[in-house]
Design a protein around this nucleic acid. Sequence first.
DNA 1: ACATTCGCTTAACCTAGGTTAAGAAACTGT
DNA 2: ACAGTTTCTTAACCTAGGTTAAGCGAATGT
Lengths: 188, 188
Amino acid sequence: MNELKTYLRKLIYFTERETEVFVSLFAEIELKKHDYFAKEGEYSSKLAFLSEGVMRAFFRNTSGNEYNKTFFTPPAFVAAYSSITTKRKNLINIQCLTPCSIFVADFDKITALYKDFPKIESLARILAEYKFAIKEKREIELVTLEAKERYEIFKKEYPDLENLISQYHIASYLGISPTQLSRIRAKR
Amino acid sequence: MNELKTYLRKLIYFTERETEVFVSLFAEIELKKHDYFAKEGEYSSKLAFLSEGVMRAFFRNTSGNEYNKTFFTPPAFVAAYSSITTKRKNLINIQCLTPCSIFVADFDKITALYKDFPKIESLARILAEYKFAIKEKREIELVTLEAKERYEIFKKEYPDLENLISQYHIASYLGISPTQLSRIRAKR
DNA sequence: ACATTCGCTTAACCTAGGTTAAGAAACTGT
DNA sequence: ACAGTTTCTTAACCTAGGTTAAGCGAATGT
């Protein structure tokens, strides 16, 4: 819970009361490797704070191939964001790649607080804007950079992750085949 | 101004007062073809509502090549969004591809209203979430689809645009060379 | 009206990266 | 400890798409 409070402090200035109200919505849960936090086709309305472990968000194309969209490492908010905000069926899966400790809250309960605690809606706005900026950066990288360069960026953005998860997960995140990642790595 | 009010109504329920306060921040401007609404390197804090014309958002990689990120067609809010929200130097350019009519507001003046008019901050949150969902969709398409399929999606999402703007702008949006787009088009 | 620039297509050639498959190495469960 | 499963690498082969350049028609400026 303290990690969550510390993380919040980096995002927004909350009073003691706001912090308590917000944090009290979260309950700790332990997940095992390969457990799912969200599955495609469901209507997810959970927001999680990841305090330990590694998770991935991925989707499947029509042929069933998986593509990793994001990796989550602590501290981070984790959610099937588009599904929550658009109220549509979830398109993505969120799964643990290692054992994970998360704190989970019902997003609808958070939304219900917007009226009495506008700063909580501010937080939602800040998070959405932040996530937008990250997506934009990634979009640019996908269009302008070669796989090799995206691999270098991955290593900088997720230090240590490389040794923690499978190569084919990284390849999938980079938008290339494991074969190609292997080739890139082979050239030192 | 009426288009703006109509568009707002689709996004959020505003009272008469909220609508007036919000809309009064906007002033109409006419832009010519090739005029810029935002340039990289600047600190932009303008939000525009596009009521007529076509605009593009693009960025340049280190070699100076341009990549189209988005096309804007009316009705739409247009802004160097990441720059505004992160307060960092603008990385993207926004330029008219045809003569345009826009209504422009200073984003800081909008932000200043959040306190007295929380629904205006709700609008900002809704816009950010909406933009995030669109980006996510595009990210998925970039990783999973072939250029040909992305071209088909482009035509569905921007009907008529194909005849209004240059092919090389479309190619750039699809992340391919004009040569390749020409090849794709040649195969019926 | 003419010259110039711009946009589109096509061809030739090249490269990044996909696919399939096989073998080696590292984990896993019992 | 062993068998079975996963993961990673490598090789052979193939394709999407890049680059350069040439030619042609359409748009544009003076």
